[in-house]
């Protein structure tokens, strides 16, 4: 179980010696700690490394300098090569990718179930209820290839909720959603945070998920 994620002087390799123009970052090159149970909004304009940071934290990329460490409940620390990201992704970290990474040949329910059955987190009925809350009740058995970008975004969100987690990363989750769906999404996320005490890290290019964030950081 991960209690917090610590970033020590982490910076994108491409930013070293050539920082992006604009206001200085509150994350890159600084010491930052994300705590379980709290919510964070990482805000930045395009090209400031929002998705890159998510990928670093999720263990998909390592083209950064500095140090990222995961602090466990018992104070133990895991960093770099010590991390078994297969286990961490299964039990501790969940990610809603900006590009969704859904499987177009599977239905919306099957896409979520593929994730959920990894840990037996939610039954098919529960998954259908979650998708229905986001207005996808008539799209449950529709292949994702035949769904709109906004619909796919909602499926990807439900998928991110359907696993045990200490932190949930949402990379620009509502870029193609209307206000009502954004509100429902926010409500579902809140319910999850309250029930399991997960940490929430949301990125935004300006169009914010309406949420009572504990911290807003400029990237």
């Amino acid at each position: 179980m991960i209690k917090s994620i610590c970033l020590k002087n982490v910076n994108l390799k491409v930013f070293v010696g050539a920082p992006p123009a604009g206001a200085p970052s509150e994350v890159w090159g600084r010491e930052v700690e994300f705590l379980k149970g709290r919510s964070y909004l990482l805000e930045a304009s395009s090209g400031r490394g929002k998705s890159s940071l998510c990928s670093f934290l999720y263990g998909l990329r390592s083209d950064y300098v500095g140090e990222i460490s995961f602090i466990g409940e018992n104070g133990g620390e895991l960093r770099g090569a010590d991390c078994d990201f297969v286990k961490i992704r299964k039990r501790s970290l969940s990610m809603m990718f900006q590009e969704h990474r859904l499987f177009p040949e599977l239905s919306s329910v099957d896409n979520v179930m593929l994730k959920s059955q990894l840990t037996g987190f939610a039954a098919r009925r529960q998954v259908c209820e979650m998708l229905s809350r986001l207005g996808l009740e008539d799209r449950l058995d529709t292949k994702c290839a035949k769904m709109s970008y906004g619909q796919q975004q909602r499926v990807a969100f439900v998928r991110a909720l359907c696993q045990p987690a200490d932190f949930i990363f949402l990379d620009e989750p509502i870029s193609h959603l209307d206000e009502e769906n954004a509100r429902i999404m926010s409500q579902m996320l809140k319910e999850r945070q309250q029930s399991d005490g997960v940490g929430v890290i949301v990125t935004s290019i300006g169009y914010r998920l309406p949420y009572g964030y504990d911290d807003v950081l400029k990237l």
């Binding site: 999720y58 998909l60 297969v86 992704r89 299964k90 994730k115 990894l118 696993q163």
Partner: peptide
């Protein structure tokens, strides 16, 4: 691509 996505979802090799 599917394999990479599955791996990034938490599926082991």
């Amino acid at each position: 691509e599917k394999i990479i996505n599955l791996f990034s979802m938490g599926y082991s090799v």
